[in-house]
Write a protein that binds this DNA or RNA. Structure first.
Length: 940
DNA sequence: GCGAGAGG
DNA sequence: CCTCTCGC
């Protein structure tokens, strides 16, 4: 065999896997029509199939114990005597399992006088010498002693735990020992109740570890009892022999007289006829369909052939070389992703009270359960439930259809209520806020901690895609059933989940829950590695509940005043449009920047050096038109027209159409996954860009009103929060000083950079300083500042130089941030939220510059986001604790808006600023301003 | 997909 | 610097 071909040997401990399957099915036994309990056979076959498809061993064997006594019984009579009588189901199942293994054309290894451990231990060591990578598949911890550079302990997935592959490092870490050999010493000292290995009395896992750290082996310990004290000394001395014997019993033999013959263990595919016959006998119809179905067969068998694994596939196939150079099973991803057809799973449809109640019994004893709702709409506030899926074991999921009859659905939910309201079960979901909101509309308040896989990935890879399909492919090499297959492409003609065949929805929904759960397993270690656990568990996940409540509440708008405004804007914009055509001397589409550009710069020739956009059009942006406005009436008219059209189309006319017919209010959706800096964003509609700067814009703000006469709007906003964070991070004395004394920060900045007393700061100086302050936060350049202030680049540079001279710590901080980014390729916020800046070392000036500005801006903008997120959680919890009637309804980056009950205005005003200021401790005072009013403009 | 403009 | 929505 050439070195190019894979040497990947899997050795399975049949007995251990059989016991495992037995216990997995002991709660709900599977009895076939002949009264045979087939749970063990099914569980074992599934595990075997999973190994073959997922890990693609080149060689494989299954080892069994025999009933003959082994050398261990001869050494120590009570060995394994403790073990209860083997359950009858297992005794009956063993011959079946052997037949199944044989039908897979996998060798069955057994030898009188030796246990499966010894056979596996011996073969593992022999195979390693033949340059195999060996995986010992067993949940039995004793095998740790055999683990070596190329021998791994492969614990199959079980009860919610994913596959666990342990090399020497992991084994040593698990027991806190120096060398894997010491697994024997540990077991020798502490004993093993299951196998009735006695050990030394009074020594458990902890003491064993401690003693071995000092003495290394059982033998050395016994020689040095003089270094022990008291009862421990006595025990070790009195039971020395028993300790030595225990170690011997726990030692897996590696010199069993068994030959290692490579060719015998090579896996060549299964015997279809035989396997079919066995499955028929056992009545494994689903499994049979899956394996023998044309698609399934292709996936299982041909995939392997492609990889050059089986038969006479050429050994020089480049794909196979690349594919199998990998050492670790986790990285040897197959080329073709698994799908619902090729992957092993059990997806069940659960219907009827009895079945649901039975499922509930299982759910209620879990610690971690994933669920997912299927609905009729994308908008959670308008969606009806079509079904709910649950998963708590990888590869296993349940789907409960919910009928269109809402009474029946309500009755189903009644049965599920104890699960959703259980405080102790971790609820896992992909974009779980959606599901919470759907359920909330059915009157269900989901309680207990949440775990959103989308959110997990957002923290791990802030700028990545977080859709389930994408994550499944990336992390699980799995291609889920696509939603378009079920309900068609997005858009007008997209079907409704309600109309899809129930079995198809079952597969789809159950798969979603299953995948989500499996993603969690992948993300857990990544969150830990990147130190994101605190942010994830303490901030982002708890925030989901806050956002759910806010979205559920929504906000009231005054449609009458908007209708009036619409009318006024309509008339005025038509008048201005007319005026523009008069001035231009031609009619054209004013709403088309392309046509406008041609009219302004080709026909009217307003600017011979007119700038163009990257697509070759003339640029007609606000900045450009503003410059022309002094000389040309048309420019100002266009600006006015644009403003009116913008306000009308984006707000005045759009908002009333977004009112929910049931609640009469507007419910935005807060997106927790899109802003790379950690901010929230708001869509459908975006309530984070409601106008405020212009007179007309403020009219729109006035239309956001309190819920009724008993309420007012209360707005609380952080004052200069990003600048304060900059001051705190840089530690700049004079900036911190200004904040501590509550001075006008922009005026103070102006006084410093223009070298005048505070009283002599003009409004123009203040404006420039204010722009400079914002620019600093954005990691600005002299060019950027000159643009914003419409001043020459040289003057802008002078301002920046003066700024850095007056605030030297700010300059240092900025340089340090870029330095850190260059080293780590990421920057982070106060709570450790990361932003990766992989272009920071790019040779492309533009890309590098962009990354450098981000290195400065991201930690500041992101820390401000961290702060308000924590504040939202704190305020929300406080309001809940106080059982207030008032509701938090909006968040606009540095501002929170409340629908405040008039009776509670005082208590809110007293508590909210403090909760917001103290959410995270900063080295500068954090100020919060509170306003009240019947509408948002007045409150702000 | 882009330009423009609303917000922070 | 970060978004979202509109109309072309």
């Amino acid at each position: 065999m050439s070195q190019n071909q894979p040497h990947k040997l899997f050795l399975l401990d049949a007995m251990a896997l059989i016991y495992r399957a037995h216990f997995a099915f002991s709660k709900n036994p599977r009895i076939n029509s002949k009264g045979l309990n087939t749970g063990v056979m099914l569980g074992f076959t599934n595990t075997l199939m999973e190994v073959l498809t997922k890990e693609k061993p080149s060689h494989i064997a299954v080892a069994f114990d025999t009933s003959a006594p082994t050398f261990r019984h001869e050494q120590f009579e009570p060995y394994k005597a403790n073990r209860q009588e083997q359950p009858e189901d297992i005794t009956v199942s063993i011959p079946w399992v052997k037949e199944i293994v044989k039908a897979f054309r996998i060798p069955v290894l057994e030898m009188d006088g030796f246990e499966a451990d010894d056979i596996i231990g011996t073969l593992a060591k022999k195979a390693e010498r033949e340059s195999f990578t060996v995986y010992m598949m067993t949940p039995d911890k004793d095998y740790g002693q055999i683990v070596d550079d190329h021998i791994y302990l492969y614990k199959p997935a079980f009860m919610g735990n994913g596959v666990d592959v342990m090399g020497p490092k992991e084994v040593c870490a698990k027991w806190d020992i120096e060398h894997v050999d010491q697994v024997r010493d540990i077991l020798g000292l502490m004993g093993d109740a299951v196998d009735n290995i006695p050990g030394i009395p009074g020594i458990g896992a902890k003491t064993a570890t401690k003693l071995l750290k000092e003495f290394g082996t059982v033998e050395e310990l016994i020689k040095n009892t003089d270094k022990l004290k008291g009862k421990q000394k006595e025990n070790v001395e009195n039971f020395a022999q028993q300790g030595i014997l225990s170690k011997e019993l726990a030692t897996i033999k590696i010199d069993v007289p068994i030959a290692f013959n490579e060719e015998d263990l090579r896996y060549d595919g299964f015997d279809e006829e035989k396997l079919r016959a066995i499955f028929n006998e056992l009545e494994f119809r689903t499994l049979s369909n899956r394996i023998f179905k044309d698609e399934g067969k292709k996936a299982v068998i041909q995939k392997n052939e492609q990889l050059g694994l089986f038969g006479e596939a050429p050994s020089s196939s480049p794909a196979s070389e690349i594919e199998f150079e990998e050492e670790s099973v986790n990285t040897s991803a197959p080329v073709v992703p698994d799908t619902i057809h090729s992957n092993l799973h059990h997806y069940h449809k659960i219907k009827g009270k009895d079945a649901i109640e039975e499922l509930m019994e299982y759910l209620m004893v879990q610690k971690v359960v994933c669920f997912d709702t299927e609905t009729t709409a994308l908008n959670a506030m308008e969606a009806e439930l079509v079904g709910i899926s649950f998963a708590y074991l990888s590869g296993e999921a349940y789907y409960i259809p919910c009928p269109a009859d809402q009474k029946e659905t309500q009755a189903i939910l009644e049965l599920l209520m104890p699960f959703f309201e259980n405080e102790d079960i971790l609820k896992v979901g992909q974009n779980i806020k959606y599901d919470l909101l759907v359920l909330k509309n059915y009157g269900i308040e989901v309680k207990g901690a949440l775990y959103d896989t989308m959110l997990a990935h957002y923290l791990i890879e802030p700028e990545g895609k977080h859709s389930m399909d994408w994550l499944a492919e990336q992390y699980l090499n799995y291609k889920p059933v696509s939603i378009t297959e079920l309900i068609g492409k997005k858009g007008k003609n997209q079907g409704n989940m309600r109309d899809v065949d129930e079995d198809e929805v079952t597969s789809y929904a159950a798969e979603d829950a299953d995948i989500t759960l499996r993603l969690k397993e992948k993300f857990d270690p990544l969150l830990k590695e990147n130190e994101l656990e605190n942010l994830f568990y303490k901030v982002e996940n708890p925030l989901i509940n806050v956002l759910t409540d806010m979205e559920f509440e929504g906000v009231k708008i005054d449609t009458d005043s908007l209708a009036e405004l619409s009318q006024a804007l309509e008339e005025e914009s038509i008048a201005i449009e007319k005026r523009v055509y008069e001035l231009a001397g031609v009619r054209f589409n004013l709403a088309s920047p392309k046509q406008l550009g041609d009219v302004l710069f080709e026909k009217l020739k307003l600017d011979p050096k007119a700038k163009k956009t990257k697509t070759g059009q003339y640029a007609t942006g606000e900045e450009i038109l503003s410059k022309l406005a002094d000389e040309h009436e048309i420019a100002q008219a266009i600006l006015d027209y644009r403003q009116m059209v913008k306000l009308k189309s984006t707000y005045v006319d759009a908002l009333p159409t977004m009112i929910n017919s049931k609640t009469g209010r507007i419910h935005t959706t807060y997106n927790q996954f899109v802003a790379a800096t950690g901010r929230l964003s708001s869509i459908n509609p975006n309530l984070q860009n409601i106008p405020i700067r212009t007179e007309r814009g403020r009219e729109i703000r006035k239309a956001f009103v309190a819920r009724d006469e008993n309420h007012v709007l209360l707005a609380a906003d952080y004052s200069q929060i990003e600048l304060r964070i900059m001051a705190a991070f840089s530690g700049d004395e004079s900036m911190i000083e200004a904040f501590k004394n509550g001075r006008d920060i922009h005026a103070t900045t102006a006084a410093k950079i223009f070298q005048v007393p505070l009283e002599e700061v003009t409004s123009d100086m203040r404006r420039k300083a204010k722009t400079a302050n914002f620019g600093i936060i954005y990691g600005i350049s002299a060019f950027g500042l000159s643009q914003r202030l419409s001043i020459p680049r040289g003057e802008a540079k002078e301002i920046i130089d003066a700024y850095f001279k007056e605030f030297p710590a700010v300059k240092e901080y900025m340089d340090g941030a870029i330095e850190k980014a260059r080293k780590d390729e990421y920057v982070e916020t106060i709570l450790g939220r990361r932003r990766y800046l992989r272009d920071i070392n790019s040779r492309n000036q533009t890309m590098r510059g962009f990354a450098e500005r981000n290195a400065i801006n991201a930690p500041i903008q992101g820390s401000a986001a961290d702060l308000i997120k924590v504040a939202m959680i704190d305020v929300h919890n406080w309001m809940k604790k106080e059982k207030l009637k008032s509701k938090m309804i909006l968040q606009v980056h540095d501002e929170l808006v409340f629908d405040a009950h008039k009776d509670e205005v005082e208590i809110l005003k007293e508590n909210i600023p403090g909760l917001m200021s103290n959410a995270i401790k900063l080295a500068v005072p954090v100020e919060v301003e509170v306003g009240l009013g019947k509408d948002w403009l007045e409150a702000h």
